[in-house]
Amino acid sequence: MRTAALLLVFLLVLCFTLAAALVPAFDLPARGRRPTDSAAAVLLGEGRRMFANHFFTKADVYMHSGYYPTIFDGARLHATTQLADHGGAESREGFLGEPRDWLDRFGRNFYISRHTHLGDGAAAGQKGPGLERELLPWLRLSASLDPQRVETYTVAAYWLRTHLGKVDEAESFLREGWRENPESCEILFELGRLTAEQRKDDARARNLFEAALRKWERHEAPTAEPDLTLKQRMLGNLARLEERAGRFDRAIAHLEALKRISPAAAMLEVQIEELRRKQKP
């Protein structure tokens, strides 16, 4: 009995020693990722990212008041969330389709089969703004489990600052995300938007947008499919800020750069012309 117990203790010590020695050697941080030593990371290992993804999706489910496709309703529909679209195109409208049999028809009385959004007043018994707060726990939990998931910070910050009036909390959360992901252009961009729209500090916002753009050029541009939409938004915001500050030449430069990657080049050309007219004394 004592021998068996000693053997067990020895094996446990050996396992922990091996883990402590080997894990750092094989840990290859991805772009902008720092290894985390939170309790969740230790307990769950890489599985925490799966949980983090689940909780992020949970927030999207809450955004739609429970009306949400499962993996059985089409992998593509389930894989992407609309949370980041901030209420954009309704690609998942009517995913349920017609009932396939009487049991399916009967069962729809007992789960949510109508598409609504939080806060739009359409959900029965719940009216008015502020209901987006219901997303926060899931986003917080997701960020705790996977601090390297940048989207969580930007989405949470968006809802906090625009719908819930929690600007300080949004900024604090973004800065927390930035500490975990120092090379993230998305977080810097969102910080810039917060500074411009809520803090009304155009100078600081411009610095943040420019820093975000630099990060984008360094990390995103060399990739196989760079996120051009993000760059468009950065350039668009920069142009707007420069225009507000009266620096039309810089605004035009940003719009010119935007025109090269935007599908609405003609409209941008009109804006550039207008700025040139304003530039002339």
Binding site: S65, G66, N109, F110, Y111, I112, A123
Partner: peptide, 25 residues
């Protein structure tokens, strides 16, 4: 089908009552 009896989502998301007919059925 146990899931028919699971109306947690309705409670959580404040959806209205299930009609009496389906409940009885």
């Amino acid at each position: 089908h146990f899931e028919i009896f699971d109306v947690r989502d309705l409670v959580i998301h404040h959806v209205g009552l299930v009609p009496a007919g389906p409940v009885a059925l």
